[in-house]
Structure formats: C-alpha cells, structure tokens
Design a binder for these strands. Structure first.
Length: 430
RNA sequence: GUGAGUGUAGCUCAGUCGGUUAGAGCGCCAGAUUGUGGAUCUGGAGGUCGAGGGUUCGAUUCCCUUCACUCACCCCA
C-alpha cells in the first residue's frame, strides 16, 4: 500500500486548465461560439476516439501525424486512436448522421481537445484545444471566403488587428499531379545542393521542400515551379473567385504559392492566418478545402472547406501583445459567517435556502473564528457577508454586510431574501 | 526521434569557492484586550536543496547516470 511515488503529474505535454484560467478560456470559447453562430454554424461534438483507420485514410498514411504522433490503443482486433485533428471525425459524423443525403450543406463547428504524441515545446502540447470550423457539402467559393473571414474575425474579436491572410491553392487531381511531377523534376536536377532535410523529403513529400526555411533551399526554390501556374482553368477560376471575394470584404490577402498543408486531404484552397508582428510564430490558423474527403470516407463526392485554430498559439499571441483579457473569476455572492459555532447547522440550512433561490453562497468549514471568516469573505471577493450571531438568532435576524460598500444592517430573517436581492441587484462593480 | 539549458519551501528566486541549525519576497496559519474583512505590525508552519550512484573525513554544492521541466530542430494548431 505504501506508494512508491509520492506524487503524480499529468502526462508529459498535457496540462490542466485550472479554475483561475477558466474565465480566459470561456472568453475564447464564447468568442468562437458567438462568431460561428453568427454565420449559421452549428456546434457538433464528435467522438474523441475513432477507429485508427479513419485517420490513416483521411490524414494520410505517410504523414507524421499518422506515422508517429497518434495515441493508439488496441482492444482485441480493433485499433482506436485519440483524434489528432478534428476534420476527419467531423466528416465521419456528417456521413454517419446521414447529412450527405438529407441536408448535404452543413455549416459545423467544434471546440475541443486533440491529441498528438509529439515532443512538447512552446505552443505545442500533446493535448491541445482547437476551434474547428467546417463547411461541408458544397464547392461554392463563397464558403472558402466565408470560412477564412470567420477565422480572421475570431482573432480580430480578441483584439488582434492587421492580420494577414495567406492564400494559395494546391490544385486538385490532374493539375496537382502535373505540378508534383514538375517539382520532382526541378528539385531532382539539383537535389545534391539541397539541405539534408529536403533531400529526405524528396521521396516522402516533395511539395514540402518548397516550404523549407533553410536559407540555401529558399534560394534554390526561387526558380521552382509554382502551383498557381499549373492550375487547371477550373481551379484557377475558383482560386481567383476566393481572392476576389475576400478582397471585397476589405481583407488583406497575400497570395502565397509556398503554402503546403501537411495533411493529404487538402485540395485547391489552402490558407493560413498570420499575425506578422509575431515573427516566426506568426501562423495562428491553418485550413483549406478538402473536396474528396467525404468520398474517401465512403460518401458521395461532395466538397468541403474548413480550418482549425489552436487555442494555445492564440493565447501565446495575446500574451505577447499584452492583449490577454483580464477577466476575474466570479465568486459566490454570499459568504455565510458563523459568529457562534452552535449556529453552524443553521448556516448550513440557510446556504441551502439561498441556493434554492438562485443566490450563490459558501461558508467556512474549518471552524475558524469570526475574524478569520470575515477575512475569507473579504479576500474571496464575495459582495455580501451574512453574519449569524446568537444575539441575532434570539431576535430572529441576521447581519447583512455589503462588503463593497462597507455597510451593515440587521435584517429580519423573513425579509432576508428581498434584502439580499436588493443589495446584490445594485452591486456597484457589476 | 535529435540537440541545448534548467531542476533549492505552494509560487518567484537567492545561496553554499564542499563543512556541521539552507534564506528572502509573495502566499498560507495565528495573534494585536476576548462578535466583524482585503491595510499594517508580530509570531508560526512549511524544504529527504528532483532521484540514484560515485569522489571525499564530510556533498544541496564536484563527477556520472536517470527522471522531469523548458527551449530549439523535425512536424504542426
């Protein structure tokens, strides 16, 4: 029974959100929900755990995420994984719910944790919360623009101004294959000059070489083929439409041919939202179109577009820019003070009564003295202290102290609720 | 997976050129004439100096190993 280890910690890369931090998280979640709903997006809460196969099919077998970053568990012959990203599960839920047949166009959003087995570092955790927005069932470029606009609006609502939307297109099908071949040829001709890392990527995922930040590679990439030059007429038109629509909203759009998403399911539109002031860590959001994912999961070939915003990078950005909302926890409205220990049962019952009437309250459980209880009431930030004393009890009254105004009145018990509501309703700090 | 840095009270950190009772601030608890708050003052509790091993008369201080955390690379939100 004697424990070998006297302390437990959360697993590596996983952190608790403590009560002190909840107001901040509620602010982020509330902002996300509010904006999503303004656009008619409905909240969905898909499974945290899926069959592993769902992710290998959708995200891609040779991606890092699937190859080495999934938390996977086996039960008998089945293999399940904690979701490493949100889109696959949402698309799966969409199909399972029958939306593809009953109401194909679905605007959906989700806020929740994702899991990736990675080495933690700043802005990267093994369990991280994402705001996911997905518009499924349509190819309309307005949805691309709408979704991008929503992502940018989220950051703006939190106080970030001067955002930059970087937009590119990965093409689709044939033009993408042609482009990939062109890149292979270009890079293959001078592979030895590329960095070791890029050489490794040559077989794995050529397109990522275009994304390299290695100075030598950047130089070599200057002459590389550009996806935007290889787009088919149809995809070109779609891309231009999205650009135009965003421009029409006054959004600053930078066409960035180097954007390459890491996940296999992306097609055509890809984008990132950047906050340039943040430098290297300026990407706050990534997303794009994934027009064949639904088909690949067994449904009809319907288009879809979406994005994911990580809460952790967002919080870091806000912190760096001094924009972290300073929101106080809201303490219970009443602290019940027992001047006499014999009244503790009455205090307990009174607490129940107040709560039944919608008034939040707490009381001391450590048998502390009056003074100490008053201290707790004051430091706890409760607007009101109710003091139960034996003299008052004999008179059928309690002392009601307004801690913000420092006013105290003796009130009869049968008028207590009204008196409390009056004081609380007119609380100056709101 | 690779590399670097750091590990001393709940938190933020001093400190010991190896020496015998390890410190501060904040926080916490208790008092300041006995039924009243956030200030002030006084006092108090709280640390196997991450863990294991080595060198030494002696290690929290030096060396090794290990674990954890942090940061960077990779990858990505």
């Amino acid at each position: 029974m004697a424990p070998e280890r006297q302390s437990y910690r959360a697993p590596r890369g996983i952190r608790d959100v403590l009560p002190e931090e909840i107001p901040l998280w509620e602010e982020l979640e509330g902002t996300a929900r509010r904006l999503a709903r303004l656009g008619g997006y409905r909240e969905i809460r898909p499974a945290l755990l899926e069959e592993t196969d769902l992710f290998t099919r959708s995200v891609g077998e040779v991606t890092d995420i699937v190859e080495k970053e999934m938390f996977t568990l086996r039960r008998g012959d089945s293999s399940y994984s904690l979701r490493p990203e949100g889109t696959a599960g949402i698309a799966r839920a969409y199909l399972q719910a029958g939306y593809a047949k009953t109401a194909p166009v679905q605007r959906l959003f989700h806020i929740g944790p994702m899991f990736r087995y990675e080495r933690p570092q700043k802005g990267r955790e093994r369990m991280f919360t994402q705001f996911d927005v997905e518009a499924l069932g349509s190819l309309d470029p307005r949805l691309d623009a709408e979704v991008i606009d929503l992502a940018a609006s989220f950051f703006e609502a939190l106080g970030l101004e001067g955002l930059e939307v970087r937009l590119g297109s990965m093409g689709d099908g044939e033009d993408r294959d042609r482009f990939r071949a062109a890149v292979r040829e270009y890079v293959g001709d001078r592979l030895a000059e590329y960095s070791e890392l890029s050489q490794e990527r040559f077989e794995r995922n050529v397109l990522r070489i275009l994304d390299s930040k290695h100075p030598g590679d950047v130089e070599l990439n200057r002459g590389a083929p550009r996806m935007l030059d290889h787009l088919s007429a149809e995809n070109r038109e779609h891309f231009e439409k999205v650009t135009e629509l965003l421009g029409g909203l006054g959004r600053r759009v930078v066409v960035d041919a180097t954007i390459v998403r890491g996940l296999d399911y992306y097609t055509r539109t890809v984008f990132e939202v950047h906050y340039p002031e943040l430098g290297a860590r300026s990407a706050l959001c990534g997303g794009g179109r994934y027009d064949h994912l639904i088909r690949d999961l067994g449904g009809p070939d319907l288009g879809a577009v979406g994005f994911a915003i990580g809460f952790t990078p967002t919080l870091i950005a806000l912190e760096q820019l001094g924009l972290t909302p300073r929101i106080q926890e809201i303490p219970p409205e009443v602290f019940l003070v027992c001047a006499d220990e014999e009244l503790s049962q009455r205090a307990f019952r009174l607490a129940h009564q107040l709560r039944s009437n919608g008034i939040s309250c707490v009381y001391d459980t450590e048998g502390r003295g009056l003074k100490s209880q008053m201290k707790q009431a004051g430091r706890g930030g409760h607007p009101v202290a109710l003091i139960l004393g034996s003299d008052e009890a004999a008179r059928g009254t309690v002392q009601l102290k307004d801690l913000t105004r420092k006013e105290q009145n003796e009130v009869p018990e049968d008028g207590l609720l009204e008196a409390l509501q009056r004081v609380l309703g007119s609380a100056p700090q709101g």
